[in-house]
Amino acid sequence: MDTLLSGQMLFAALVSGSLYALVALGLNLVYGTLRLLNIAHGDLVMIGAYTAFWMISLFAVPPIISLVVAAALCALLGWAVYVGLFRRMLAKPELAKRVEANSLILFYGISVILQNLAALAFTSTSRGYQYLDTVITWQGVSMTGNRLLTLGIAAAICFGTILFLRFHLFGWGLRAVIQRREAAQVVGVNLNRVQLLTICGGFAVAGVAGVLVSMTEQITPFMGFPFTIVAFVVIIIGGLGNIGAGVLAGFCLGLVETYGIALTSPGYRSILIYGLFVGVLLIRPEGIFTKAVRS
């Protein structure tokens, strides 16, 4: 009971919650504005993680700088996917319908390719490095620097995005696209630009998450898939395309997971996560935090 109420436990829950929220944020933005179900989303986390690993191993560049490099790299990938695959198809409504239906399978293919390319290039040996792993103790809570950094950056990006969507005109346009794509075009939102910036931003955020993850976890070509699953669970709980609720749901999942495991055992991790997923789908398929409005 003592450990349950400790700040230590809460800190651990917040760190993993912030990461889940961050990974899900990108997936949710891309789904909301492009209606693409990016099953390769977790593989962008993997790319971010390897970026950080090689940057520090080969060039002694610290992860704090690799954050920018990974973001740029993943944004570039987003741009390539958008321009190379989707722009022409999304412009034509008849084709867009097919792309949306097929995006799951298409991205599954991209995911397999990315994982195997990574395995060929980097072997499947798990990698890791040490960065900011000295322990800081504050109010009796011991925290490593890298976990504090993870929490700080992930939370800042999540809440920064929410504020941007709430107060910036471009953010309003983005929300308009999420709520009603055609109506957004009717009022004069530049759909092409919103979609391009969103896919670049959504991919970049996943890359950033990968850098953060790499500071504390092992890096392998196949590390991405669990993040894809977690991200899907989070956005189903929060409601597809509902950005703020997705962030809240990410933190909730971190809490449920951490406290759930503490009350049971680590063997229950998957059962907890999938159980929550199935439970939400059965009881409230539109998401727990979604307000009911007439459309």
Binding site: Q179, A183, Q185, V186, V187, G188, N190, L191, K291, S295
Partner: peptide
């Protein structure tokens, strides 16, 4: 493209109204 048409003064009030349901009237 549609946004340029709006910008040049052509504005559609679409069938079925298509307001943004999750935003306030003012938004």
């Amino acid at each position: 493209p549609s946004h340029d048409r709006v910008n040049s003064g052509l504005c559609l009030i679409p069938e079925g109204r298509l307001v943004f349901p999750g935003m306030s009237v003012e938004q």
